[in-house]
């Protein structure tokens, strides 16, 4: 049963990730990307990370995708080329390297021996995660909020420049 769930999730994830980087129109890219995000959230549920799956749905599938679509609609596509093609030479050279690295990592991971420290995850994922987040990792948490503050200031500065010029 677990294997079946994994096969379904990974097929959808890899297919929609490849679709997102290969289709032409930016709006179609966003649709493929939305499918990718949903499959990633499903894999978080399968790995018993409930809080992260919820955050994935709320932050990625709602906030970030809507933000992308908003920006895509503000670009005047009658002046900008919708599809600019691929870098041909890079494609020819990158494809064998991509296939080789994927094959090598599949070989290495399948033949690797992970540690035997298998402990069951805590029953209540949200309370366990919150406890660790607000005690042991309080400094990275504060740093993350600082990163968000800097990003907000930067976005405001970009917006002001557009309004003035």
């Amino acid at each position: 049963m677990e294997l079946l769930v994994f096969v379904v999730i990974s097929t959808i994830a890899i297919a929609s990730a490849l679709g997102a980087i290969l289709v032409k129109s930016p709006i179609h890219v966003m649709v493929w990307f939305l499918g990718f995000i949903l499959s990633v959230a499903a894999s978080f549920f399968a790995l018993k990370a409930d809080l992260l799956a919820g955050l994935q749905l709320v932050i990625y599938a709602v906030a970030i995708v809507v933000f992308y679509v908003l920006v895509i609609t503000t670009i005047p596509w009658e002046k900008v080329k919708m599809f600019e093609g691929f870098y041909k030479k890079e494609f020819v050279f990158a494809l064998p390297a991509f296939l080789f690295t994927v094959g090598a990592s599949i070989y290495l991971v399948i033949n690797s021996r992970l540690s035997n420290l298998r402990q069951p995850l805590p029953k209540d994922n949200v309370s366990a995660l919150g406890t660790v987040l607000f005690t042991k990792y309080i400094a990275p948490f504060e740093l993350a909020s600082f990163i968000l503050l800097i990003a907000m200031i930067g976005a405001i500065i970009f917006g002001k420049e557009k309004a003035n010029g």
Binding site: L117, R118, L121, A128, L129, V132, L133, K136, Y137
Partner: peptide, 8 residues
């Protein structure tokens, strides 16, 4: 590993 540290 059975720990939630990586999820943080």
């Amino acid at each position: 590993l059975g720990k939630v540290d990586a999820q943080v």
